[in-house]
Nucleic acid binder design. Structure first.
Lengths: 175, 175
DNA sequence: ACTCACACTGGACATATTGTCCACTCATTC
DNA sequence: GAATGAGTGGACAATATGTCCAGTGTGAGT
C-alpha cells in the first residue's frame, strides 16, 4: 500500500467488506424497500450473488437489521440532550444502566472515560419536559450527579455510509 | 397508568401515533424483512390497513426509512468516542460542521449548549487510530480545541422502541 | 500441473407477495 | 342525515421470492 499517511492498525481477524458489499449497502440505504431482484439489476450482478452477499453480511454481523428508522421529532420529541452522570461505583454488572433502560426517553447509554461515568442520550418533548426526564434519571438508585448538554441542532445526523464506502478503499485485499 | 407525576406539555399540532401504529413499528423492528401481508396477518387487520398505515407513517415523517443497520464494530471500528470542541464562531451557517462531515469516521455532529460548541460521535479502529481521527478533526479550519470521551461500553444501544410504545399511552386520544 | 473449494452466473420452477382496483360497513363530524 | 375518513374482504394481473440446478472462472494448496 502506497499510503503516505500512517495506515490505521487493524486486527488480523478484522472483518472487511469489498466494494460490491459497499455498493449493495449504499443502494439499500438509498432505497431500502428494494427487493433482491431489483438490487441485482441495479448492481449488474446475478440475483443469487446479491442474496448470498446479504446473507453473509447478516451472518457476519455487519448488517444487524433493517428496522424502520423512527423520527423522534415526528413523535413530538423535539429536544435531544446528552446527560453525563457520576454514579456510585458498584462491582459487577451495572444496575444503574439497567434502571436507565427502563426510561423510554433514554435512547442510549454508554460507560465512558473521563470525569463522568455514564453518558446517555435522551429526548424530551420540550425543554420543560426535559426537566421531568432528568428528574427521572436522578431518581435512579446509584446516580449521584448529572450534567446535561442540550443539542441545539444536528448539522450531521447519524450516518455510516461514508464509513462503509471508505472501508473497501482502506482494505482492498487481504495481503 | 394513573400517573402522579405531571404530564409533559405537548404542542397542539404534535403528531401522535396510536396503538396499532406502535404495534406495527414494533413488529417491523423485530422482523424487518416482513412483508405487508405478513404484518397484516400478525396484527390481525386487513392488508390494506397495514399498507395505509405505513404510507401515512412515512408521509408524516415518523418512519424516515428502512435503511440497513450497520455494525461499525463488525467493520473493524471497535472504538467509539464523543468529541466535544470549541470552534471559532462565525456568522451564518456553520462551515466547520460541513468539513467534519467530510470525515467518514465522524458519524454525527450536534451543536450544543454549555462550554463547548460542537459534540460529535466518532469511531476508530483502535485507540491509536482514534488519535489519527482526532488529528483530522483538529486539522479542520475553525476548530480551536477538542476534548474526547471514549465510550468503554454501551449497556443500552440506541433504541426507540420503548418510546414508540410509550407514545400511544401518553396520548390515547386527542381530546 | 492438478484438484479442491468457493463465488458467481444464468436459468428454471412453484409459490407467495405486491400494487391496485372495487363495493361495503362503521363511526365521527358537520 | 349526509358527508368524510378508515377499515374490511375480496378480486386481479404482474412481480418477486425461495430453492433448485449445471456450468464457469479463480485462487489456494498439494
Amino acid at each position: 500500500m502506497s499510503s503516505v499517511s500512517p495506515d490505521p492498525p487493524r486486527k488480523p481477524y478484522t472483518m472487511t467488506i469489498d466494494e460490491l458489499d459497499a455498493r449493495l449497502i449504499a443502494l439499500l440505504s438509498a432505497e431500502p424497500r428494494l427487493g433482491v431482484l431489483e438490487c441485482s439489476r441495479r448492481l449488474g450482478v446475478a440475483r443469487g450473488t446479491v442474496q448470498a452477499r446479504l446473507d453473509r453480511l447478516a451472518a457476519r454481523g455487519v448488517i444487524t437489521g433493517f428496522g424502520p428508522d423512527i423520527s423522534t421529532e415526528a413523535l413530538g420529541y423535539d429536544v435531544t440532550a446528552f446527560v453525563m452522570m457520576e454514579i456510585r461505583q458498584i462491582a459487577g454488572h451495572d444496575p444503574v444502566a439497567d434502571r436507565l433502560a427502563l426510561i423510554p426517553e433514554v435512547l442510549e447509554v454508554h460507560t465512558i472515560t473521563g470525569g463522568s461515568d455514564l453518558l446517555c442520550r435522551v429526548v424530551a418533548r420540550t425543554n420543560a419536559d426535559l426537566q421531568r426526564v432528568i428528574d427521572g434519571i436522578v431518581d435512579v438508585q446509584g446516580v449521584l450527579r448529572t450534567s446535561s448538554i442540550i443539542a441545539l441542532d444536528t448539522p450531521v445526523p447519524y450516518r455510516v455510509l461514508p464509513l462503509v464506502a471508505d472501508v473497501p478503499r482502506r482494505a482492498p485485499r487481504e495481503p
